[in-house]
Design a protein around this nucleic acid. Structure first.
Lengths: 139, 139
DNA sequence: CTGTATCCCGTCAGATACTG
DNA sequence: CAGTATCTGACGGGATACAG
């Protein structure tokens, strides 16, 4: 059983081996989603929005290393994909709030698992990496 | 309750708001793991290895667009992080097999969920994005 | 406050050629 | 078969300045 096939419910096409013949299209949009989810800031922002709407400045403060450019850019992407809502209040000073959508809430569960996994295993991975480096003295 | 805090079991530090005061270190290694998991090929390779070890050439064939360079690079990264094993057989012609480790198996569940999510929602996202583009005629 | 515009550099990643 | 080496263009992403 191939995870790719299982995922979309397509047939294995039985070319050779257990999981071969991955539908190239499948790959393509998996990669597309992964690029979005796996980009530098998206998951962090989604995780931060779990507890309720946040303003631009909140996010800028809560995500330590992010630049204005990247925050704007990421939010715009997320908004275009329907993963966050953007609500601008006609006030002065202006206020804009970003919030999750049902779509991103369904992603949130997975994102949280990923973050949990990262928290549980990051030191193990760091150790592994350190060992590997000492094993290969100078690259 | 903040997903960040919950993830590592750290205290919220109670600076302001529900989820503020994200431990910057937390962010750092979450991002580190995400960079690995979310990079262009890693998750695909991990998913493909679910059903058993695969050889270099198998992977090259099964991951449509990957170059030799990126396959080598990704496998080396994964190996260094302890996410795949590399077994070289002293034969001719040479044969090298890559397989998952217990560590990456624990990741696999999450990866599969992510792929499943991507499969379920990619057309919705594509539609959202298309709408957003038409709404903003020329960027 | 909430962004956008510009500059700029480092890394990513493909193509191609070569090696054990 | 299983990679490595090198070159190169594209893009991500930071800093800064400016705008609504």
């Amino acid at each position: 059983m191939c995870v790719m096939d299982q995922a979309a419910g397509t047939e294995p096409a039985a070319s050779r081996g257990p999981c071969a013949a991955i539908p190239a299209e499948q790959m393509a949009f998996i990669r597309e989603i992964l690029d979005r989810v796996g980009d530098k800031w998206s998951t962090l922002i989604i995780a931060l929005l779990e507890d309720g709407p946040l303003r631009y400045s909140d996010l800028q403060h809560d995500v330590p290393g992010i630049s204005q450019r990247m925050l704007s850019h990421t939010l715009r992407q997320l908004h275009q994909d329907g993963l966050v809502t953007r609500t601008a209040y006609a006030e002065v000073p202006p206020r804009v709030e970003y919030a999750l959508t049902p779509l991103s809430r369904s992603l949130l569960d997975i994102v949280k698992q990923l973050i949990g996994w990262a928290s549980d295993h990051h030191d193990e991975i760091r150790r592994n990496r350190a060992e590997a480096e000492t094993a290969v003295p100078r690259r």
